[in-house]
Computed example of a mutant assay.
Amino acid sequence: MEPDELDWNATLRGQWEHHWEHQLRARLDGLTDDEYFWSPVPDTWSVRPRGSSTAPVQVGAGAFAIDYAFPEPVPAAFTTIAWRLGHVIVGVLAARNAAHFGAPAASYESWEYAGDARTALDQLETQLGVWLAGVRELGEAGLRTKVGAKEPYPEASMADLVLHIHRELIHHLSEVCLLRDLYLHTTTTENGATR
């Protein structure tokens, strides 16, 4: 690469890495199980012990399942931090890591959802590590390749997919941060006690 050429691979990774390191990661520290499962409104979709949900569809391979409906209701159901992290971990990252970077197969139906906040954050960090390593290995040429039939828009480039995944991560993890703020301001008193 010429000295004046832009390293697009590093630039795309840097977009996410900067946001993660300087805006999101510290905001997720200390996530409690109460926050993880908090349902601020009735009929919130979440990750729940298998068999305890009233959602039309519950999927997952382990002791916990994630709520869904097909077709998705209008308006869309409100979702907990647990649900949003499950979506990011599986639908945004793990399925893409499997499709494009040789990671084990992953789907909403086959995933073992986390029954606590710490496990969910560990799953998130693991999948983020696989994603970033995969993107790094693409190099410059790999970013120009087509995503193919593994994605809804097969003619899109891997660079398009990277940008899409980073937007999804920033979007959904910012929602998680907002829910933490709402939890703090609606469930605790001025002296820090739980209401």
Rank of each mutant, 00 (worst) to 15 (best):
D4R: 12
D4H: 13
E5W: 15
E5M: 14
E5G: 09
D7S: 06
D7I: 04
D7P: 04
W8N: 11
N9T: 09
N9S: 09
A10P: 05
A10R: 12
A10D: 11
T11G: 09
T11I: 14
L12Y: 10
R13K: 12
R13P: 03
R13S: 08
G14E: 05
G14P: 05
Q15K: 12
Q15L: 15
W16K: 07
W16N: 09
W16H: 10
H19G: 09
H19A: 15
H19M: 14
H19L: 15
H19T: 15
H19W: 15
W20Y: 12
E21S: 12
H22D: 13
H22N: 14
Q23A: 13
Q23I: 11
Q23D: 11
L24E: 06
R25G: 04
A26C: 02
A26D: 10
R27F: 10
R27H: 10
R27D: 12
R27T: 09
D29F: 09
D29N: 11
G30D: 08
G30N: 05
L31Q: 06
T32V: 04
T32W: 01
T32C: 04
T32D: 06
D33Y: 04
D33K: 02
D33I: 05
D33W: 04
D34S: 13
D34W: 05
E35M: 07
Y36L: 05
Y36N: 07
W38R: 03
W38M: 06
S39V: 10
S39M: 15
S39H: 13
S39W: 10
P40W: 09
P40E: 12
P40D: 11
V41W: 08
V41N: 11
V41I: 12
S46H: 07
V47G: 00
P49V: 04
R50K: 12
R50P: 07
R50F: 03
R50E: 10
G51T: 01
G51A: 05
S52N: 07
S52C: 05
S53R: 06
T54Y: 08
V57I: 15
V57A: 13
V57C: 13
V57L: 15
Q58H: 12
Q58K: 06
Q58D: 09
V59F: 07
V59L: 13
V59H: 05
G60P: 00
A61F: 00
G62L: 00
G62E: 01
A63P: 02
F64S: 00
I66H: 00
D67H: 01
D67V: 01
Y68D: 08
Y68H: 10
Y68L: 13
A69G: 06
F70T: 15
P71L: 07
P71W: 07
E72Q: 14
E72C: 11
E72N: 12
E72D: 15
P73D: 06
P73K: 03
V74S: 15
P75F: 03
P75H: 03
P75M: 04
P75A: 06
A76F: 08
A76G: 11
A77G: 10
A77D: 06
A77R: 15
A77W: 12
F78M: 14
T79A: 09
T80S: 09
T80R: 06
T80V: 04
I81L: 03
A82R: 01
A82Q: 02
W83G: 01
W83S: 02
R84Y: 03
L85N: 01
L85M: 03
G86K: 02
G86P: 02
